[in-house]
Computed example of a mutant assay.
Amino acid sequence: MSAQRPAHGPARDGRLHAWAELLRAPAAFTVPGDVLAGTAAAGTRPTGRTALAAGASLCLYEAGMALNDWADREEDATARPHRPLPSGRVRPGAALAAAGLLSAAGLALAACAGRRALAVAGPLAATVWAYDLGLKHTPAGPAAMAAARSLDLLLGAAAGPGAVRRAIVPAAFLGSHTLAVSLVSRRETEGGSSTAPLTALAAAGALTTVLA
């Protein structure tokens, strides 16, 4: 029995590393920022419900990461064969199941944070799935990404006792900034002119600075 233990350890570590790579684990530390910004924009302090909303946001983010690789598995097999799915380190069915379970967990945490939080988390989850499964490679992709960021900020506002309407303007500017960044990235990838999106990015940044 003792001779078999070393073989299990590396295999288990390899699976954990593959899942961490699939879910972009290091990026998860950046996720609660939108929720906390929404809480501050609503004029309230973080509470236990804020923590639940942050957990919901994190679950929905990770669901999007798993779903993204599942949707792109055929493209990744050619362009990025080292990724967890095309390399065989994570099964496609397992990635899709994880996306579903994480989405359900996110909605459940949002429900625990209150009806208002759930009312925002539902459209956020729908936007994540729509983006990964159909909108990402269409002209509507950047707008969907922007909507997800805006909703994520509003989730923090909705989880607390403050007025959600106070967070609408900050959410709109966060969405505008995300839209501009997404357009710049897309133009660079496709080789088109980035003048217009760069101008939009600069404008969004300037307006955000003024509001801050």
Rank of each mutant, 00 (worst) to 15 (best):
T189A: 11
A51R: 11
G122A: 06
V181T: 09
H17Y: 09
A196R: 07
G162V: 14
A203R: 00
H82D: 07
L154C: 14
F29N: 03
G205P: 06
A140Y: 02
A18E: 15
T47K: 05
A94V: 09
A206P: 09
L201Y: 04
A200M: 11
G43Q: 08
T178R: 06
D69Y: 03
D76T: 14
A105H: 00
A157Q: 10
T30A: 13
A95R: 06
L124N: 02
L16I: 13
G192Q: 11
A172M: 10
A167K: 02
L60C: 00
T39F: 09
V169I: 04
A113N: 11
M145A: 15
E75M: 05
A147M: 09
A42N: 11
A203F: 06
G156F: 09
S193I: 02
A110G: 13
G9E: 15
L135Y: 00
S193R: 09
D13Q: 15
W19P: 09
L133Q: 10
T44W: 12
A158S: 14
A203T: 06
R91T: 08
A167C: 00
G162L: 07
G55I: 05
A105D: 01
T44R: 13
L118E: 03
C112G: 14
A171M: 06
R80C: 07
A147W: 09
S2P: 02
L58N: 01
G122H: 12
S193F: 14
A130V: 09
L109R: 08
A63Y: 01
P26D: 05
R15S: 15
R73V: 05
V181R: 02
L207A: 13
V184W: 03
T44Q: 14
G156T: 01
A158P: 13
E188L: 07
E74D: 07
A126G: 10
T47M: 00
L174W: 04
G64Q: 06
G141E: 03
L133N: 02
D72Y: 13
G160P: 13
D72N: 12
L154M: 03
L67H: 01
N68K: 00
S103R: 02
S150D: 04
L154T: 12
V184K: 15
D76Y: 08
A42K: 12
G14P: 12
L135G: 07
A212T: 11
F173D: 14
A172Q: 08
S57D: 14
D152M: 04
A148K: 15
A146D: 02
Q4G: 02
E62G: 01
R149A: 01
A121L: 10
R149L: 08
A119R: 12
D76K: 10
C59Q: 07
H8E: 11
S193L: 06
A11G: 04
L154K: 15
L155Q: 05
R5L: 14
N68A: 01
T50P: 12
W19V: 04
L85G: 06
R73K: 00
R5W: 15
V90H: 07
R24S: 14
A121S: 10
Y61R: 00
G160Y: 11
A25P: 13
G88W: 05
